[in-house]
Design a protein around this nucleic acid. Structure first.
Lengths: 127, 127
DNA sequence: CATTTGATTTACGTTAACGTTAACGTAAGT
DNA sequence: ACTTACGTTAACGTTAACGTAAATCAAATG
């Protein structure tokens, strides 16, 4: 009856295993302020929020972003208020990122096309 | 009448400027064997083929590939023959790369969605 | 109780992809 | 002849993102 669908706390090794990273990586991310696990004694306990952040960090990593860039983007998600000036700056940042991602998307499409050509030639050569 | 559409030779600075990289970068790529400019005396002259390769390298770079990975892919494009075994290995490599690119593509789509949400909230906050 | 297991901190090491500096040659324009 | 612009080699420096090793500690287990 009290079985919660998702654990609220994660040990460092559990989280590491789930996302296929090392514990060193998680400690490093904490050191950089990207994750903020609770401490009981000296032991870390990661929250569900940390888990979400980790997911975003790793996605950013796959996209070739630096940790700093990932951190910046993640921070955007909880921007509660901010001056008009700050919000405008935020919108500019978003526009930049969007542009970059779209070019990246085109790059992928082009690369996939190129790879398909190579594959064709390869299959042909095999008869 | 003798105006060729595309120059056959490029100086290092011309190429650097066109692709917005430093000359240091081009020399570094040569050092890594990614570009192979002709030498007249000590001066480098890049061919149209070098230019194409550079374009591919930079595309790989935008996709977060290492130079080694880019080199590997570029080499695939001129694979003239090869044993059946090599061709099969090549096909495997292509499949891997395809998978990676597709996940990256999904990441981009998801990120663009997320950014759109942030943008909405941002605009709302500005009234 | 001795040991294994998993956690911790500290700190030096590593790799990729250039940046930067030094010290110099060459060719064009004034 | 002088400056300016562009080229060269050689080699040390830098940053990001962890890897790795050493020493320690705490809980659980045989």
């Amino acid at each position: 009856m009290n079985a919660s669908q998702q654990p609220r706390q994660f040990s460092i090794s559990a989280l590491a295993e789930e996302f296929d990273v090392t514990t060193r990586t998680l400690r490093f991310y904490e050191e950089k302020g990207l994750l903020t696990p609770e401490r009981r004694g000296r032991v870390r306990y990661f929250s569900a929020a940390d888990r979400v952040r980790l997911r975003l960090i790793l996605r950013g990593r796959r996209l070739g972003l630096t940790l700093e860039q990932s951190a910046e983007i993640i921070d955007l998600y909880r921007e509660p208020e901010g001056s008009k000036r700050q919000l405008q700056r935020l919108l500019d940042t978003l526009a930049d990122r969007r542009e970059q991602l779209q070019r990246q998307s085109e790059d992928i499409a082009q690369t996939l096309k190129d790879l398909a050509d190579v594959e064709d030639k390869c299959r042909a050569a095999m008869e």
